[in-house]
């Protein structure tokens, strides 16, 4: 292997400046989680806590979806050469990056395009950034915000990807998300007062209105808790099993399956 000139710190900084961007999926996944946390859509905080914090432990693939989709897959694909080559080509891109960085200096929103790869990429054109609300559990859809020449939607399915992933077309509007949140919040509040029956009422309304809702997994998880609270162990276990079927990658599953114990 030949010695290649290393980039200076400045060159590295210039190239790195635009190399740490989130994917559209990162944006949507986190937005959804933030909204849910704001709404308090969590049984005593635990459901959401599980979603947000034990993801790494319960389902590493979930927590690291972002890295798999961006850095991980990217770097994984790179194996075989040498870092020094990467650094060399960093130098080569500095001119571009410097320009790009200048353009971006004042810009704040993510208009950066980046290419995702996965073992089974499914490309789909994105004419325009839709208001995607990626599922909190097992997010698998990544959209590009800018119609770049090579813009694709990379879907990085995991082995346990849910079969019932909502399609983009079926995604509810933001107002229906607000409705979902309101119903689940009502359920959670009822649960916190040990009123399992009232909670079940709210959850029934949720599943009637939003059978394909974005917060369907959270709804099922709350249902498990509500059924336990009303002493309906069998039905609680059935609901947990349903959650496991519908959202197999969800960190909510492990907790639901342990319910009523």
């Amino acid at each position: 292997m030949r010695e290649v000139e290393h980039p200076s710190l400045d060159a590295l900084v210039d190239a790195a400046r635009v190399g740490d961007a989130p994917s559209a999926e990162d944006r949507e996944r986190n937005k959804r989680a933030v909204l849910a946390r704001i709404a308090g859509v969590a049984a005593g905080g635990s459901v959401l806590a599980a979603t947000s914090t034990t993801a790494a432990a319960a389902a590493p693939a979930l927590a690291t979806t972002a890295s798999v989709a961006t850095t991980g897959a990217l770097l994984g694909k790179l194996a075989g050469g040498a870092l020094v080559l990467a650094l060399a080509s960093v130098s080569a891109t500095v001119a571009y990056s410097r320009r790009h960085a200048t353009e971006r200096a004042g810009a704040t929103s993510g208009s950066q395009r980046h290419t995702h790869s996965s073992s089974q990429p499914i490309a789909r054109p994105t004419p325009r950034a839709p208001q995607t609300q990626a599922p909190l559990v097992a997010p698998s859809v990544t959209t590009h915000l800018t119609p770049a020449p090579a813009a694709t939607v990379a879907i990085a399915p995991r082995a346990s990807a849910p079969s019932r992933a909502p399609s983009l077309a079926a995604r509810p509007s933001r107002s229906s998300l607000a409705e979902e949140i309101a119903l689940l919040r009502a359920a959670r509040e009822a649960l916190s007062r040990n009123d399992g029956a009232l909670a079940l009422g709210a959850l029934d309304r949720h599943s009637q209105r939003f059978s394909q809702g974005m917060l369907r997994p959270e709804s099922l998880a709350l249902r498990v808790d509500a059924l336990c609270a009303t002493g309906q162990r069998e039905r609680a276990h059935a609901a947990a099993a349903q959650l496991a079927r519908e959202a197999p990658g969800s960190p909510l599953v492990a907790r639901a399956l342990r319910a009523c114990r």
Binding site: A16, D20, L74, L75, L78, A86, S89, V90
Partner: peptide
Amino acid sequence: HTEAPDESAARAEAARV
């Protein structure tokens, strides 16, 4: 050991370094 097949990978690599 990595190599950068394209520009965005190079940038990601730079960010990592």
